[in-house]
Every structure is written in C-alpha cells, then in structure tokens.
Amino acid sequence: MLDPLNDIKDAQTLAQAIVNTIPEPFLVLDEQFRVMAASRSFYETFKVDPAQTSGRLLYSLGDGQWDIPNLRLLLETIIPEKTSMDGFEVEHDFPNVGRRTMLLNARKVIYETGTSATMLLAFMDVTVRRGIERDREALQLQTEELLRQKQVLLDEMQHRVANSLQIIASILMLKARAVTSLEARGHLQDAHQRVMSVAAVQQHLHTASGIDQIEVSSYLSQLCGGLATSMVGEGQPIEVKVIADSVTIPSARAVSIGLIVTELLINAIKHAFPKARADARVLVTYETEGDDWNLVVSDNGAGKPENTPPDNGLGTAIVKALVAQLEARLDVSSGPAGFSTTITHATFTSSMPLAR
C-alpha cells in the first residue's frame, strides 16, 4: 500500500492512471476551477489539446467555449451547497464537436486538513439518447394526431351509415304503407326490421369502447326492445324479455346473432299467438362457456300444428345461412307449451329458462 507522505509521485501517477481508465470524459478541478487532471476520453471527446488544458481555468478553455451558464450554476452555486450532483443536464455547442447534450456528475472532495478542496466532474454524452427520445415523442404526437383524425373519419363514416340505414328503413316503411298487397306489405315490413337490426349493431359499434367488440346483453336488449316497440300492437300485448351473459363478442358474430334474433323474434311475434292471451311472452337468452355459446329464442305460444310442412321462406333461409356461417347447430322444438329455436356453438348444456 502506498505511503502518501513518502510516495507522492507514485500516488499522483496512480491517480492519473485511474482518471485515464474512466471511459467517460472526466476532469479534476481545484477550488478555482482550474484543470488539475483530465482523462484521455475528455481530450478525445472534445478534441482539445492537453498542453492547452492542464492548469488552465475551465471557463477559459478553447477561447471561452466552456464558459457555459449552466456549468457555472452547477460548479459555483449547486455544488458548494450540496457537495454533489448527479444527472445535471447541459446542452451546448462545443467547438470541433457540435451540439451535444451532456449529463454532468459532480463531487466536491474535502480533505482532512480542511485547507483545500477538489472538484470531480464527469461527463456522459446523451445526445443520441435525447435525440431518440425527441423522435419518439414526435412519433407519439404524430400517432396521436393520426388516431384523432382516424376517429374523426370513423365518426363521420358511422354518422353517414346511420343516416343511410335510417333513410332505407324509412323508404321501406313508406313502401309498405303504399302497397295494397298484404303479402308485399309483410315482406317490406320484415325488410324494415332487418335494416333496423343492422342499425342496432352499428349504433353499438359507435358507442362501444372497442370497435370490434360488442357487449351482448345491452345489444340484444336494445335490439329486442326496438323490435317489440315497432311490432307489438296494443290489441295483443307480448312481453319480450332478454336474459344474456354480460360478455363481449366480436362485432362480426354480433351482426349474425342480431340478424338471427331479428328473424326469430319477427316470426314469434307474428305467428306464436294467433289468439290474444294475457301472459304472451317471448324469451331471448344468450349464455357462454369459454369459447362455446348458446342462443335460444322461445315463446309460450301455440306452437306449430302437427304435420305442418317445412318452412322454406326467406326468414328461415337467412337463419340457416347465418347458423352455418357461425359453425353452429340449429335445433327447434314445438309443443303445446310453445316453440323454441336453439343455436348452439360446440357442445353446450343450457341453464337458461324457456318462455313457458
């Protein structure tokens, strides 16, 4: 171990070797901020001459380019009060180097004699890092602006789609009132309800937090409520009830399920109750279990008479096509207690009630 009294030169040699080993630019300053020692990386980074650096006042190096206000603030105000400072950021145009952003770490070393002090000053070049951060911030702002513009365009598109659907629905209703054929009027009214079903999906897409997900319970409740309001007359009140799990599903599946429910509900309201009854009810249930799901539309009406020929109408064709598209299974049951249609994806045992 070195004896500081007998081996001062060796101690100075060791200290300079330590300074030169530090990979970042490093300075040792006296109390007047004169350069006592500088690391090799300091000379290489700032391209200064050792002969014009050692023993000179830091602020006068290179004809004064180191006379930086923030550096003076650090050395003359902050360090005397705190004795140390880490991560003090300085941005400056250095001659022969260009504009650089440096993080300064400073320490004031006070010796046991108390007669003098030394300042240690380390530099870390974070120019590239700050540039990347600025680019990232600019990209973030640009992305946010693009998302804002996208949302504006999406809102405008949704508004136009909603208006177009409303116009189509209105035209269909006007045509239904104008035609004299009861069959044609019925077809036009059914088409009107199908358009309103698509409009309900569109409305949920507009209000949902995610464009591709729809909350099933509120969607089916709104859809069935709208259909019931437009179709159920005062002379034959029919309760339409929805029981559904509070889950979200992809909008594509929601469109198909909405159209299926529309067809089945239209059919139930039209045909399930040939005679008025006080407890007339249609129940729509939707439940899930993992990736499996089960949709049931049931009523407590008259059911289908025996030996009724298969229904090959447009509504039935639509339901079958949508069920196939969903890769689901279609089952129907009819009896004195009513009629029910079940659409099942994969194996599923329902725990929901029927409209009995």
Rank of each mutant, 00 (worst) to 15 (best):
177 R>K: 15
290 G>V: 10
298 S>K: 04
258 G>T: 11
115 T>W: 12
17 A>Y: 04
162 A>W: 01
155 D>M: 13
218 S>F: 05
55 G>W: 07
329 R>K: 15
81 E>G: 07
260 I>Y: 01
62 G>E: 00
245 D>I: 10
348 F>E: 00
207 T>W: 12
129 R>N: 10
38 A>H: 01
340 S>I: 04
2 L>Y: 14
175 K>T: 10
148 R>H: 14
304 K>L: 13
33 F>W: 11
252 A>N: 13
129 R>C: 04
122 A>V: 05
159 H>P: 06
149 Q>C: 12
102 M>S: 07
10 D>W: 08
220 L>H: 00
269 I>L: 05
59 Y>D: 04
231 M>S: 03
142 Q>M: 13
156 E>P: 05
333 S>T: 08
148 R>E: 10
98 G>R: 08
30 D>Y: 04
131 G>F: 12
24 E>P: 02
90 V>M: 06
86 D>W: 06
137 E>V: 11
51 A>R: 12
161 V>W: 05
181 S>A: 12
266 I>L: 07
206 H>R: 08
295 L>H: 01
119 M>T: 06
85 M>E: 06
49 D>M: 08
228 A>W: 01
75 L>Y: 00
6 N>L: 15
223 L>M: 09
64 G>Y: 05
71 L>Q: 00
158 Q>N: 11
31 E>C: 07
252 A>I: 15
34 R>V: 05
215 E>F: 02
138 A>T: 15
125 D>Q: 05
319 V>N: 01
189 Q>L: 14
112 E>N: 10
349 T>V: 15
343 I>P: 00
